[in-house]
Every structure is written in C-alpha cells, then in structure tokens.
C-alpha cells in the first residue's frame, strides 16, 4: 500500500506467480470439474448430440429437479439403509473372522480358500439365488451387500494383524501376557491403518452391492431408480441418479476418512494429517 513497503518489480511478479500456483493447487480439482462440465455442455449443444446418446449437464440438472426431493430422499434412504446395514454386518463378520484366522493356522488354511471362492463368484450371478432363498425383503439385499464387501475387510484386517513387528510379539511373549491382550493391545491397533483402507474400499463396494441387489429385486432405491429411468428411456434422469449415487459414494468414502482422522489420527501418515 505505502510506497515504501512496496516490493520491487521482480519480487512482486515472483510472489504473484507463487500465489497463482498455490491457488491452482488448492482449486485444481474444482477448476477441472468446471472446465469439464462446461466442455460437456458445449459439445452437447454445438454437436447437437441427441439426449439418448449423451444428455447435457443442463438437462441432467433439470431432470434432477424434475423429481421431487422427497422422492430422491426415499430412494436414497432405501439404498443407504441397505448399504450401511450390509457394511455393518460385514464389519461384524469380517473382523472377528480375521482375528480367528490370524490366531489359528488351521482356521486360516481352511477359511482362506473358501473366502477366495466366495470373492471370485460374481455377486451379480448369485444375487438372484439369494433373493429366491431369502425373499425380496431388506435381509437378502443386506446379505448381497455384505457378500460383496467383506472380503477386502477380512484380507486387510488379517494383513494388518500379521504385519505387526515381530519384536512386539516377542515383547508380549516375554511379558507372559494373556493371548487376548496380544490381539487387542498390539495386533488390532497395528491393523488399524489396514482396516481403514479396507473400510474405504468396502464402503464404496457396499453402495455397488446395494445397487446390484436393487437391480435384482427392489421397489425403491437409487439403483432401482436408474434402472427404471433407463427402461423408460429417461436418460437424463438416469444420469441424474447415477451422479447422485456417485456423490453418495464419495461422501461415504470421505466419512470413513474423517472417522479415521477423528478416531485414530496416529494411523494416518504424518504429512497427510
């Protein structure tokens, strides 16, 4: 402001470029997103792309607001409920399973192959069977979600527990501490970073699981909504559902990240905290 404190010309341009750089770094993703959407809209308008090939962002936004918000919430709640219940069930199953596998060689040898078989069976193929066996209620959709989410959790938990430094296990042995304390005070906390990377994968899979289940049998939910919209050739509406679904996945993913940051800040590398 005052003439005196004004830096000389080169320094000024230096700080300016630095500021621009920092600004770019901070808003790079937002900027990219805006450019992307604007390009998309332009291509659709200039190229007169038919809506059934690629709906323009504006038509998608319009389609989004054409559907009553309470209706969106109903579909969202149906999907979210199944996804979260499946996710919770999967946590309840996989963490004890991983603990059992780490503690017992026999169990680990018998269960691992079974897990791999379950994991490599496409859930899409099994889903109709589950619906036939367990009915069209929430329970079978939760089970489908659980099936799709629990493998990464078991593997990451078990891996984390096995990666505990050997020294600490020896320390525990030399203290002649009860075995359960080795599990709870050393192995499980050590597995926390791994468990959370597993949780991050699982939460996004949970949404996929819930949607797959809705494709097979449902009267509500975002997956059902998307399928419905496509069957009526309401492509912008299907896109709106798809984008909404992606946003929900993103929020859930971020929530897991926040939970980790809040509950176990030490488990995140220092430069990322």
């Amino acid at each position: 402001m005052s003439q005196k404190s004004m830096p000389n010309k080169t320094a000024l341009s230096d700080t300016a470029t630095l500021a621009i750089r920092q600004w770019l770094l901070n808003y790079a993703s937002a900027l990219f997103f805006i450019v992307f959407v604007v390009m998309w809209e332009l291509i659709c308008r200039v190229g007169k792309v038919p809506v059934y090939i690629l709906p323009s962002p504006v038509s998608i936004v319009n389609a989004f607001f054409d559907v009553e918000f309470s209706r969106w919430l109903e579909h969202l709640w149906a999907t979210l409920r199944v996804a979260l219940m499946g996710f919770a069930l999967s946590i309840c199953i996989s963490i004890p399973l991983a603990i059992a596998m780490v503690r017992s060689e026999v169990l680990s040898r018998t269960i691992y192959p079974a897990l791999v078989v379950i994991q490599s069976t496409p859930v899409v193929a099994v889903a109709p069977l589950i619906i036939v066996l367990m009915g069209t209620g929430d329970m079978s959709r939760v089970l489908i979600t659980c099936l799709i989410t629990f493998f990464p959790l078991v593997v990451s938990t078990a891996t984390g527990m096995l990666e505990t430094p050997e020294e600490l296990i020896e320390l525990s042995k030399s203290l002649r501490a009860p075995r359960y304390r080795e599990t709870w005070q050393i192995r499980i906390p050590y597995a926390i970073p791994h468990i959370f990377s597993g949780l991050k994968v699982s939460i996004t899979l949970a949404i996929i699981g819930a949607v797959v289940a809705e494709f097979v049998a449902a009267e509500k939910g975002l997956g059902y909504f998307i399928q419905f919209s496509t069957s009526f050739f309401k492509i912008p509406q299907a896109f709106a559902g798809l984008i909404f679904l992606a946003v929900v996945s993103l929020v859930l993913f971020k929530s897991v990240q926040w939970a980790q940051q809040w509950l176990y800040p030490w488990s995140i590398p220092k430069n990322k905290r």
């Binding site: 109709p128 036939v132 069209t136 097979v216 049998a217 449902a218």
Partner: peptide, 12 residues
C-alpha cells in the same frame, strides 16, 4: 412386487 423377467416372476 416388481420382477426381473418372466422366468424370475415364475420362480418367485
């Protein structure tokens, strides 16, 4: 209840 094809409906 909505279905996913005739075979699915018959099965249900």
């Amino acid at each position: 209840a909505s279905g996913r094809g005739s075979t699915d409906a018959v099965t249900k």
